[in-house]
Structures are given as structure tokens and as C-alpha cells.
Design a protein around this nucleic acid. Structure first.
Length: 108
DNA sequence: GGATTGACGTGTC
DNA sequence: AGACACGCCAATC
């Protein structure tokens, strides 16, 4: 199986529990890619094109900021989905980010 | 196969 | 606290 980095990223993202969030860097590290955090974000651009759908809205940057919200169909979708899962989003940021943070390295 | 790119991260100013 | 600069690394052109 020649899985690209993207495929691996998708698998990790799909493992994110409902109501939890993680960061690009954390995912990259869990894949052993450490510094390829940008690639993780790049992979998310394809999040809406793969099956099953990847909960890309649960992935934010290290600050809990919804950096990729503008890539959603309606940009508001991202925050809306997060709030639907019990999270609190304000100013495109996940409040209590640390509390809802899900670390692949720790949880897996 | 070199250059470009990017939903990032961390450090400085 | 906000803005800017540089680094990392795989995929794509």
C-alpha cells in the first residue's frame, strides 16, 4: 500500500473522538513526521474529497485557532460543527483548547 | 530532479 | 500583545 502522507493524516484525524480537537503539529508528530506540520494542513484540503469524510473541523493549529475555516463550504461550518460537539468557539478560536485537546501520541 | 508550495510552529522584534 | 521571519518536509509542477 503506497499510502501518502495525506492518507496517514486522514486516518489519524478520523480517530479523533467527537467533541475533541487536536493540532496539525501533534498529528505530524504522531506520524513521526515532526516538522511536516504544514503537510498535515495541506492534506486537510483534501479532507472533503475522501471517503469516509474526515472531521477536519476537529483539527486546529497549536493555538486552537480555526486557521482552515475558510476552506470549508461555508466557512462558518467549521465553528458550527465544533459547537455542535459541545465545544465553544469564539473569534475563530477554540475556547478551553487545552481541555478538549486530543493528543494522538498520548491517546493512541 | 530542482523549484515551488502550504488549513503550521516557534522564536524574535 | 501583535506582527514578522525563518525553518521543516512531503507532494506537485
Amino acid at each position: 500500500m503506497e499510502q501518502t502522507f495525506y492518507e496517514q493524516v486522514f486516518e489519524v484525524v478520523k480517530l479523533i473522538p467527537r467533541g475533541r480537537v487536536t493540532s496539525y503539529g501533534a498529528i505530524a508528530k504522531s506520524l513521526g513526521a515532526g516538522g511536516s506540520s504544514r503537510m498535515v494542513g495541506f492534506a486537510m484540503r483534501y479532507a472533503g474529497t475522501v471517503h469516509p469524510p474526515v472531521p477536519a473541523h476537529r483539527v486546529v493549529n497549536s493555538s486552537g485557532l480555526l486557521t482552515g475555516k475558510f476552506h470549508f463550504d461555508p466557512p462558518e461550518r467549521m465553528a458550527d460543527l465544533l459547537e455542535s460537539e459541545g465545544l465553544l468557539v469564539k473569534n475563530d478560536k477554540v475556547q478551553n483548547f487545552k481541555v478538549h485537546f486530543w493528543d494522538p501520541l498520548t491517546e493512541l
